[in-house]
Structures are given as structure tokens and as C-alpha cells.
Amino acid sequence: MSGRSSDSTARPSGIGRVATPQPKAADAEIREVATSLAESVRSFRRSLHIRTVDTGSCAVCESEIRLLAAPHYDLHRLGFFFTPAPRHADLLLVTGPVARGMEVALRKTYDAMPDPKAVVAVGACPLGGVFAPDDWVHGNLDAVIPVDVFVPGCPPSPLALLHGLLLAVGRLGAKVTEDPFTATATPRPAADAPPPTKAVEVSQPAVAAEAASRSETT
């Protein structure tokens, strides 16, 4: 069910286990993955309990995960709750490079979770971006348990995490799939061109009004 795929083109640096980039996105395959995930998480409805496992991360991802409960992001309004018990959990958030010392704990947590369950890899470490597999770390979460949603970032911001959680339960789509991360070239303004004073004049009151309204509301 996960995005696990065979790798033929490893990165020259040998870090992680990165799948070959597809020149043309296989739309049917993406739809199939999304459908199967939506099928498996349909019974979550609008309430979902999250268990987090730290497999040797630097704790910045944890700090972002903790911020999810802050009023700015407030994941409880979306029906997500944290739980300390894997037997009550529907979704597993895994951070860190999957240290081999945490492998048993990670597998036990995964096995203790009732079906259906989803696994979200949080940050660059469990995505295989930082550490190469060696005697201490697996360097890739997909090597240990099947991953359903990959949330990149170092660390991913809380809104990126929220997007990942909503993607896991099928309430939002993946925006990055179709994005080629290229931009069309636009003519650059000359270096000695006068600054756009008019735009600044227009935007300043707007910014001030925005700030005033924000201080009013908070």
C-alpha cells in the first residue's frame, strides 16, 4: 500500500534508498494508492488518535508536532488527538532516522496498533534524506514498516504536518505530485530601476490595517 518501490538509481552519495524519479507521473498508480489508503482509513471517520514514536531524532520534529496542539494550528478541531497508548492509536507519526536500537520498540508499537492503521514518516530523516543505512541506523523508515504518507522538511512546519495528516485520512490531496518545481523565467527588473513606490504606498496601509485587525481579534 505504501510508496515502496524498487530503486535502480541510487544517489551517488549513497545516502538513503531513494526511488527512481518517474519522468511521467503514473496517474493510475497514484489514484490506486490514494483509493486504497482512503478505503483503509474510511472507518476513522472524523476522529483519529495519533501515537508518535521518536526513533532517534534531534527533537525538532517533536517540537513541531507538539505545536500542532497550539491554538494557531489546533489539530483537535479537525478531529485528531494524541494518545500515549499504541493500542488506542490509528496513526503512527515516526520521526528520526530509525535507529536500530529503536527498531524493536517501533515494530512492537506498529504491531500493537489495531487495523486499520496508517504510518506517517515525519521529516527528512525517516524519508532517507539524511543518514545512510549503517550499523546504527536504518536511515529509512520504509525499510522497517510500510509508510503511507511522507512529510518532508527539516523540520516540517506544523501546517505541513496537518496537511500530511489530512492527506493520510483522505481529506486533502497531495499537492506536490504534479508540481515539477520549475518556474517559467520572467524578465528581471533592471538593477538601477527605481523601486516601485506606488506598490509600497498601496501595501503599507493594508499591512497596517491587517496588523490592527489582528491585534483586535487576538
Binding site: S5, V18, P21, L37, G128, V149, F150, K175, T177
Partner: peptide
């Protein structure tokens, strides 16, 4: 783009 979550690892390789 900060909402980078993907269902497949290969989708993140551009």
C-alpha cells in the same frame, strides 16, 4: 510550497 506531503516517495523526487 510548504505542504509537501506525498503518498509515494518517488513523488518527492523531481
Amino acid at each position: 510550497v510548504s505542504e509537501l506531503a506525498a503518498l509515494r516517495r518517488a513523488d518527492l523526487v523531481k
